[in-house]
Amino acid sequence: MKTAVNPELQFHITNFLHYEAFLLDSRRFTEWLDLLADDIVYRMPLRATRERKDGATIVEDMTFFEESKTSLTTRVNRLGTTSAWAEDPPPRTRHFVSNILVESGFPNDALTVRSCFLCKRSRAGEIEAEEIFGERVDVLRNVDGQWKIAARTIYPDQAVLGVKNLSMFL
């Protein structure tokens, strides 16, 4: 693994991902969209339980998210309607992002960034919180001194999700 990044860059990237989580948890979705490159590829393939000899446990053929900037914008716009019931009353989410590994080596000021995520969601008066967790692999691109997410792949750890829907962004 190429991890020849300096501490300053690690700090910037960590801050960037924490800020992104802050925007999502504060429901500042329009500002969140600004962090995404216009050509973003945002995907969440399925996890499967497979025998070791059969290979990867990620199934790329089917996804939970298969998004572009346009389709993510539609999702955000939906949250602005008067009838997005899954998000109204708004559930409370916390995106915990950790284990951030920055890998350099991409051309054009791009970085591959791996992180772990845990998203907890509390709805209405329910005591039990829903949760979803896994790994994210991002490609971050430096555009005029601003980091933008050029690609995100979300790998859930569960083969059967324990959330009633994916109305949140991960």
């Binding site: 969440m44 939970f64 899954a86 829907n165 994916l166 109305s167």
Partner: peptide, 14 residues
């Protein structure tokens, strides 16, 4: 109509 779908999300909530 997938679990993240703009149509699906609201059904399960209800």
């Amino acid at each position: 109509f997938g679990p993240s779908g703009t149509l699906e999300q609201d059904d399960t909530e209800i």
